[in-house]
Design a protein around this nucleic acid. Structure first.
Lengths: 219, 219
DNA sequence: CCAGTTACCTACTGGTCAGTAAGACTACTG
DNA sequence: CAGTAGTCTTACTGACCAGTAGGTAACTGG
């Protein structure tokens, strides 16, 4: 019998770099989302990734580098998901509806991603917050453009500053509603999206009188 | 000349316990809001408070105890501020308006408090999140009750579940708009409150057609 | 089968930080 | 003025953690 049998269980060995990097990033997102940047330890991330710490450093650099890479990857995924969901030619309310549905769909299927992006990154001071602020800024501009166009087509000459602020409020509402949804997961993504759509398009004033918004019949 | 002159500058000495505890809590809120729970060190808090570390432990207990105490104090202040602002007898929209104005007024005058309450506490796993979730729950119930009453008086039989969700969305919108405001402080509290009021009461659908909500003339 | 490269490890260092031990100073009380 | 209760300090410990040194095993091309 062999005396030098390895003690630890089979751990996939000698995988190509690209695969390991993916594993590491997946593990890092999971741990960061659960513990936050500071409380997460590189030891735990390497353990979850099934790899030793020096590999982690060799592939992804310092802890801050790793966190920034996580943020960039998840943000890119999310922006793509929303971009795929939206339909440029439609009426403003339908476009907004599609965007919201895509957003909540993404959050529902990538909870850890969302927590890293929103909850964790926004409470770290460094370059992360900047990165996130940029992404949020793009979302706000997008919504603002939508509203501007909508207002123009109605011949209303609102100040653009006002529209910008409303867009920021809507984006904020979406972010917080997503957070809330994580703690009340009994609803579908479409139901949550519909809720926000009604709130921001119709307003309470209409809703309490029974006027609601619903998507065009084609779904 | 005296050889034993103390080196460090005058540091208020031998204050009664109650005063010191206030100083410590003020310092803790400032440091926690700037750095977050994990990155904040007890050494820094004690230094900002103008006191040595063992005093901090003697008076406020462990780091977690201290953080929880901060949260409770700031949350109580905020709830009181909103309670003082609201006017129970008025119409639903006016009540909502008063509540929003009080909320944004508090955030504007206690930025550090708000950051501790919302940004920091919500991203820590421990008992803090629970404490915060309770506070948020109370706010949501309050708004939900307001909307229910409003809907009832219109004779509309909405499901109460739906109202609860809308209230959660509104509270979330308020929280995120407050965060946004911290990064865009060029507006007054009333302006920000008015922005959210218009969004949630009128909705984009009305706003783009030029219909806006404004407070009753008395201000 | 040998040389170079890539994947991977164990075991450490240096620094930071929560929490504490042990006692010093001050003010009040009798 | 002795005693005591409350305020306050310096100086430490033990744990944890980011990052590294230095070495081993496996593939790859000749």
């Amino acid at each position: 019998m062999h005396a030098e049998e390895p003690i630890r269980p089979v751990r996939a060995k000698r995988l190509p770099r690209a695969v390991r990097e993916r594993q590491i990033l997946d593990a890092a997102v999971a741990v960061f989302s659960r513990l936050g940047f500071h409380a997460a330890s590189m030891d735990e991330i390497s353990e979850v990734a099934g790899i030793s710490k020096p590999m982690l450093y060799a592939y992804l650099g310092s802890k801050e580098d790793l966190f920034a890479t996580c943020i960039r990857r998840e943000a890119t995924l999310m922006i793509e998901a929303i971009g795929d969901g939206v339909r440029p030619g439609e009426a403003p309310d339908v476009q907004l509806w599609c965007g919201l549905r895509a957003f909540f769909g993404f959050v529902g299927e990538h909870r850890a991603s969302w927590q890293v992006l929103h909850r964790q990154a926004s409470s770290q001071g460094g370059p992360f917050a900047q990165e996130l602020a940029d992404m949020r800024g793009r979302a706000i501009s997008l919504v603002a453009a939508l509203l501007m166009h909508s207002a123009d087509s109605q011949g209303v000459g609102h100040a653009s500053r006002d529209t910008e602020g409303l867009a920021a409020a809507l984006v904020g509402a979406g972010e917080s509603l997503a957070d809330w949804w994580l703690d009340h997961p009994e609803e579908s993504a479409a139901a949550v999206a519909s809720r926000l759509m009604n709130l921001v398009w119709m307003g309470f004033g209409d809703l309490v009188e029974g006027r609601v918004w619903h998507p065009p019949a084609k779904g």
